[in-house]
Design a protein around this nucleic acid. Structure first.
Lengths: 193, 193
DNA sequence: CCTAGTAGTGTCTGCAACTGACACTACGGA
DNA sequence: TCCGTAGTGTCAGTTGCAGACACTACTAGG
């Protein structure tokens, strides 16, 4: 293997994070990020497809966690319980990662262009999960619905977790699932036609 | 030349749609859209904040439909049933709008940059719905969860509906809600059907 | 130890998405 | 009839991104 490229990539990611924290996403140019990392703008774009993507490099790990978690659930567990266990399994890594992900979330929240990218990443993750569920034997419709719903619970839990420092993510997740079960499963009158 | 402003805006929207259909989003420049509409590029950017937004002008109507539909549900209807009725209420306008929205969906689906924008719009709509539900007296957590989940059902139904021409959206919506109830509310045991 | 291949980089060049500043023109109302 | 306003054109500038090509550090193979 030739000279480590991976190293430059990490310097770029760190430089970008610093600059975005210092001055905000919009006030930083790609050339400046590259300069701080000691490379050229062109090199930046060889490592990341655009200015935003540096920040979302960690999302790949999330995908891995989900994939592994779901794979670790026995195949005979029905869809929804399997998804629930999967969510439980990725709570730990998420909590371990909190300090970093909090800073990231702050930057993203403050920048529309980044929120857009984040929303897109979520959608992509949901569709990956859907694929995995289909691989477990679910119908496409079921899989998509379960993936969307479970992700919704987790996403909402994460949001509440960030809003309330010092709380445990697991608590929010549990609350979300029970809340959902109560709301949806409850026999309150909603006549289908 | 023209005076209305609104008129130019509509010409721009039509021109953009045509060009995107003819050559694809990426192969069209903002200047070309403007030219076909008989104005300058600068004028384009006075009507729309960026190249993508022309296509999403109609989303405002969706927001209105949702707002009105939810407002029309009596305040004493509990959260989830209220949401379910709201979804039912906007099925009609959605179906009436099918030909246009199908073409739009095709363009969006083919272009990553547009999918991103679409995902972002969905997120925004969900947060608007959350706000409305809070206005009805729900807690933030409940509201967010219900909004996310219900929108998930509708979004999934719309996708299935587009994939199966000739079917009725209402059918997919009904199926989605019953499926969800069965999965989430049902005893932890059995795969459906 | 030398040589050849390859991954990573710098440089140069160019397009297209936006943006600010300013001058102009049609219009509706006083 | 004149004036204020909203919509537009023009021009110049910044920045995100991409193709082409030459160069350099490193590694493997002889």
């Amino acid at each position: 293997m030739p000279r480590s490229g991976q190293e430059a990539r990490e310097r770029l990611a760190r430089a970008a994070l610093e600059l975005f924290l210092e001055r905000g996403f919009d006030a930083v140019t790609a050339a400046e990020i590259a300069a701080r990392a000691g490379v050229t703008e062109r090199t930046y774009f060889r490592h990341f497809p655009d200015k935003r993507e540096v920040l979302f490099d960690g999302e790949r790990r999330l995908t891995e966690w989900v994939t592994e978690a779901l794979a670790s659930v026995p195949a005979d567990v029905p869809l929804w319980p399997a998804m629930r266990r999967t969510v439980d399994l990725i709570v730990a890594p998420l909590e371990a990662n909190r300090p970093d992900s909090d800073r990231l979330a702050a930057i993203v929240k403050a920048t529309p262009a980044l929120r857009e990218r984040a929303a897109s990443k979520e959608a992509r993750l949901v569709s990956i999960i859907t694929g995995l569920l289909v691989g477990r034997g679910a119908s496409t419709d079921e899989a998509a619905l379960v993936a969307r719903t479970a992700w919704g619970v987790l996403a909402q839990a994460i949001e509440a977790w960030r809003a309330a420092p010092g709380t445990s993510l697991q608590v929010h997740v549990d609350r979300g699932f029970t809340l959902l079960t109560g709301l949806v499963g409850g026999a309150q009158g909603d006549p289908p036609r």
